[in-house]
Design a protein around this nucleic acid. Structure first.
Length: 494
RNA sequence: GCCGCCUUAGCUCAGUAGGUUAGAGCGCCGGUUUGUGGAACCGGAGGUCCUUGGUUCGAGACCAAGAGGCGGUACCA
């Protein structure tokens, strides 16, 4: 009988996992990071480009969505003409498509920068999202090491531009050709036949920091079983090859020059390996000439990058600041950027070879690291708050707001309902510092009351009784209406 | 995908051996105070105890499956 509570069957308000709402602090900081990176790219002569979030799936890479499982790795859907479209998973593949599509009209090397959300249909984790923002610069059409050095220097400069100090980050550079050379001498052919094995080796080395050399050794050989009992197939290299690869990963010396010397001994007579050494030498020459020392850019043979498409120099930007979770345990957020040479990506669309190199700055990664470090700063000041005492004076209130805005300050008139009590509570919650009150009393005298809520809260600590609190009306002053803007400015400055 | 842990109010959590109407603190809303945010006091709203099925006279509690969260591992073209 008492069935008055029929289930309304409302939808649950919930956000898809791996997708984040960006609140004011985060959003403003993100915009600042992007702006900082853009200014570096721009100063280097790069031009902006914006491409759409969707691309035809076949343009995005070798990956083509399966009819049964169209969404592994990427988010894909079918257009009304039955073509598969995918949300971009990075900004590099769309660039390759753009360049290939507009090849003849572009001055080469074509150098562009771009920021935007990219999407990956993977399991989210700390610092890993299904939608996240990257801010890239790429250079298409330049085969030489100068273009790679340019990317590496910009990567370091972007880190500085976003506010990181020397010692808080380091760009770590390696060259795929070195590993190719070592694998070649170890019997893994540098052709399609060895591609799968080479990729497995790359992924194994990529896990060096997490699994240690024992774990990587297992992955290079037969395979490895983790604590949870999951088994990973290994690359099945021979004992000598494993030794050579592991030896390579620890070949970094204390300086860039020393590392190159170590590497030259390791690669022996391999043509590809020697070419890799020469490229690093060329890069070092440029970096040294501009005074970029190994504190900011180091050569590190344990850096490989998990992606298969790199063909030459590769690098990652490591955030060196320690990150701790709520329980004080260290959290690895991984690299906050990386890049390298990918000479085959644009060539896919065209017969001829098109060299390319680029850098991708993981804005969301850095942002979530900053969030964990508690170093998000909201530099935007709260608006001046104009209370609505008398609705018939709304026009005058908005007039005041206009004057304040014209002086370059944020200002808002209360557009909600409720008396002054409610308005003051709202202002308090908004973190507002200055509130303007003008009722009939002030109006008659040509005055306005300005209240400093921050100061008021401070003074309130010494007041315990409500009577006292009410009669004191702490931290407010009465000024002439025509001096409103000037007074507000003075109060903000003091 | 695989393994482990977790899921009670907006948040943090209690809930004893299965037994009426499921609690606390904080937060939120309202009032004391219709020209003033704090404090204090008073009052109020808010729960399909993640879901479904099972065991039982009786399940928030026990069992099973599923979903979601967290962590690890794999994948990440």
């Amino acid at each position: 009988m008492s069935k008055k509570k029929q289930k309304p069957n409302r939808p649950k308000a919930r956000r898809p996992r791996g997708f984040e709402d960006k609140t004011a602090d985060v959003f403003r900081t993100e915009a600042r990071l992007i702006e900082a990176a853009f200014s570096v790219y721009d100063l280097n002569g790069f031009e902006p480009l914006q491409t759409p979030a969707f691309e035809y799936a076949d343009a995005l890479g070798k990956f083509l969505p399966d009819e049964d499982r169209p969404n592994t790795g990427v988010f894909a859907l079918r257009d009304d003409d039955d073509q598969w479209m995918s949300l971009r998973y990075d900004l590099t593949a769309p660039l390759a498509r753009y360049v290939a599509e507009n090849y003849d009209g572009l001055a080469k090397p074509y150098r562009r920068y771009q920021a935007g959300s990219v999407y990956r249909n993977e399991k989210p984790g700390p610092g890993r999202f299904r939608e996240f923002v990257q801010c890239d610069a790429d250079s298409v059409g330049a085969p030489g090491s100068a273009a790679d050095a340019e990317m590496i220097m910009m990567a370091a400069d972007v880190m500085r531009a976003v506010g990181l100090k020397a010692g808080q980050y380091q760009v770590r550079v390696n060259n795929r050709k070195l590993l190719d050379g070592i694998l070649e001498s170890s019997g893994v052919p540098n052709t399609e036949d060895g591609a799968v094995q080479r990729l497995q080796v790359l992924r194994a080395i990529d896990k060096l920091d997490r699994l240690g050399s024992d774990g990587v050794e297992a992955l290079l050989g037969e395979g490895r079983e983790d604590e949870s009992g999951d088994y990973t197939q290994g690359a099945k290299l021979g004992a000598n090859a494993i030794k050579a690869v592991l030896g390579f990963t620890v070949a970094s010396g204390t300086g860039r020059g020393e590392t190159i010397s170590n590497l030259e001994k390791l690669v022996g007579t391999s043509e590809r390996g020697l070419a890799g050494c020469q490229e690093l030498r060329d890069i070092d020459t440029i970096l040294s000439a501009v005074g970029m020392g190994s504190e900011r850019v180091a050569f590190d043979t344990s850096i490989v990058r998990g992606l298969g498409y790199y063909t030459g120099p590769v690098f990652e930007v490591e955030l060196l600041t320690d990150i701790k979770d709520r329980k004080g345990r260290p959290v690895q957020i991984g690299s906050i950027g990386g890049g390298g040479r990918y000479d085959d990506l644009v060539s896919r669309f065209r017969g001829q070879p098109v060299p390319a190199t680029g850098f991708s700055f993981g804005v969301s990664r850095l942002l979530s690291a900053m969030e964990r470090l508690g170093s998000l700063e909201n530099e935007t000041k709260p608006p001046i708050f104009i209370t609505v005492f008398d609705r018939s004076l709304l026009g005058q209130y908005f007039k005041m707001a206009e004057e304040i805005r014209a002086a370059g300050m944020r200002a808002e008139v209360y557009v909600g309902t409720g008396n002054l009590t409610k308005q003051m509570k709202y202002a308090d919650r908004r973190g507002i510092q200055l509130a303007v009150i003008m009722g009939e009393d002030e109006l008659a005298r040509g005055e306005v009351t300005i209240k400093d809520l921050v100061l008021g809260a401070e003074m309130a600590k010494a007041i315990s009784s409500n009577e006292e609190w009410k009669s004191a009306r702490p931290a407010q002053s009465v000024v002439q209406r025509e001096n409103l803007v000037g007074s507000l400015k003075d109060m903000l400055a003091s």
